[in-house]
């Protein structure tokens, strides 16, 4: 369970998150929507442990532990996954090596023996099928030369490999054609269980046709200004964000 209380974060004295409150329980799907620049990616990367932003106030606990006190890698090992809006290309690091290292670091953290090469490859094959990712993508360097859609699929593939308890998907749908969108959504749905939670950050209602959220939140100017059920997403789709901006101008 993820519990965020009054979270403030800034960069160069510019406050970007201005008091976020959000509780995500196992089995739930939350959607966070909001206009560009409202702080959605900032919230995700602060939770994931980016040191670009400075947390100036508030707290976040993850299954009872102080999330903000942990280094990024421990947050991941505890079961938090962040699907980047802009996945990073890392030429020279092969996908296989990357994933094997990541998985074995998780296992070490949990006092498990590292996977043998055989075990690892078997797992990789299974998960590849699950998210319908092309084999020649996993034979390449991390995200290098991947198209926008391939990068997003690769994020979901990594999620499938790491089996997180809470996943934050930051605009995983943007830049995807309808087929890719369906594949990504299917992947997310298949990985879903009563013990895991998903936070979907999106601009559009589109993805929410495939992944039905329990809650929809609107982030504006660093605050969650509105929370409701899935019908809010439809309302936003219809009316856009201008009315939100107007209503919560300050």
């Amino acid at each position: 369970m993820l519990e965020i209380k009054n979270l403030h974060a800034k960069i160069d004295d510019k406050e970007i998150l201005r008091g976020i409150n959000l509780t995500v329980k196992p089995g739930e799907i939350h959607a966070i929507m909001g206009p560009n620049g409202s702080g959605k990616s900032t919230l995700s990367s602060v939770l994931a442990g980016s040191d670009v932003f400075e947390v100036s106030e508030g707290s976040a606990s993850f299954y009872g532990k102080d999330l903000l006190a942990m280094p990024a890698e421990d947050r991941a090992r505890e079961g938090l996954f962040y699907s980047f809006q802009y996945p990073v290309e890392i030429p020279g690091v092969s996908m296989v090596n990357f994933m094997r290292t990541a998985l074995n670091e998780h296992r070490k953290y949990n006092n498990l023996k590292p996977y043998t090469a055989g075990e690892f490859l078997k797992l990789m094959r299974e998960k590849k099928n699950l998210v319908e990712i092309d084999s020649n993508l996993t034979n390449r360097s991390v995200n290098e030369g991947f198209s926008g859609g391939e990068k997003k699929k690769n994020e979901i593939f990594q999620m499938a490999m790491l089996e997180p308890r809470v996943a934050i998907l930051d605009e995983t749908d943007s830049g995807l054609d309808i087929d890719a969108l369906r594949i990504v959504a299917n992947g997310v749905n298949k990985l879903k269980s009563k013990d895991t939670a998903t936070i979907i950050i999106t601009h559009y209602q589109r993805l929410l046709d495939y992944i039905i959220p329990d809650f929809v939140h609107v982030l504006h100017n660093g605050r969650i200004v509105k929370s409701a059920g899935k019908e809010l997403a439809l309302e936003l789709e219809e009316k856009g964000y201008d009315w939100i901006k107007k209503e919560f101008e300050d």
Partner: peptide, 15 residues
């Protein structure tokens, strides 16, 4: 590369 570093760490890979 700091971005690459964060990406790797966000997958559970230590510094």
């Amino acid at each position: 590369d700091k971005k690459a570093m964060f990406y790797l760490r966000s997958r559970g890979i230590g510094v």
